[in-house]
Design a protein around this nucleic acid. Structure first.
Lengths: 146, 146
DNA sequence: CTTAATGTAGCGTCAACAATTACATTTTTA
DNA sequence: TAAAAATGTAATTGTTGACGCTACATTAAG
């Protein structure tokens, strides 16, 4: 299975906040028109980011701002906020291996730490990238296009 | 989302083949009783492993054998065989960012290689483990239990 | 020919993702 | 204080994939 598009949408949201935050109020409708998904999808993701302590959302008047410098928000932070799986486990282990079978009885113990190492490798690479990296890239593309 | 249990089931299958292959014929019913899932699930996974060139399945008479030494079958090989996602991409990118928005126009170019690096980190770690590692672990557990 | 097994089609159930409508709630401002 | 603008969230729908199961045609060996 794939990691949900909520993840790339969330990064897109941050990039818009930084790029347009000085000139526009960042509402869910504003974001929806850049990302081209339904505003309610945006609001739900904003809600997850807010609950994770990454952003502040103004009710009533509207508008969204980041609560940390963008170079201190990593891809991993965003991933945890919007795509957390049951128990945080990347792999779905088959539930009931037969305890009366020598393999069934021990397969879990053998696999668990290996699967965890694989998950860690992915998460550690996610920690290498911050929102600031993306924003800088996008700014560079915009400058080069002129 | 999680990586499907087909992956851990497939590894369990290999472990059973190696552990019991000399004493038993490895049929889908035999595997199903160790793994405790429906035999059809097993047969479908065996079919995927067969199409990936990892095993041979005897029709009619029944029975399954690996086509390579188990230290030359990595977790990554198994993952590719049973859990290949559309285009092989771990991340689902939102489809239609607005090309008239400077961010929407460039977000893909900025993210693509970063997402690929994250996926590579996971895949490379998968390549560090082979079926033989699991089989050795299980054998060790069995010896220690005596 | 019988038996035992695989291969596969075809159901059903369940959960997650995504889109959408609708509306209560909140805040600012005129 | 009332209107306007925005968020928060519930509810519904469609779609997809995972997983379980039944049924049966096909295959190979004795």
């Amino acid at each position: 299975m794939q990691i949900s598009s909520r993840f790339t949408i969330a990064i897109h949201i941050f990039a818009c906040m930084e790029t347009f935050g000085k000139d526009y109020k960042i509402t869910s409708d504003f974001l929806a028109s850049s990302i081209q998904v339904n505003p309610v999808i945006i609001r739900n993701i904003l809600s997850q980011l807010r609950k994770a302590g990454l952003i502040k959302v103004a009710r009533g008047t509207g508008g969204t701002t980041a609560l940390r410098p963008l170079d201190q928000i990593t891809f991993y932070d965003v991933y945890l906020a919007v795509d957390l799986l049951e128990g945080g486990e990347l792999f779905h282990f088959h539930e009931n291996p037969n305890p009366d079978c020598p393999v069934g009885k021990n397969i879990h113990a053998s696999l668990d730490d290996k699967l965890m190492q694989i998950q860690r490798a992915m998460e550690n690479q996610m920690k290498q990238y911050s929102i600031a990296d993306v924003v800088n890239d996008v700014k560079q593309y915009i400058v080069n296009a002129k």
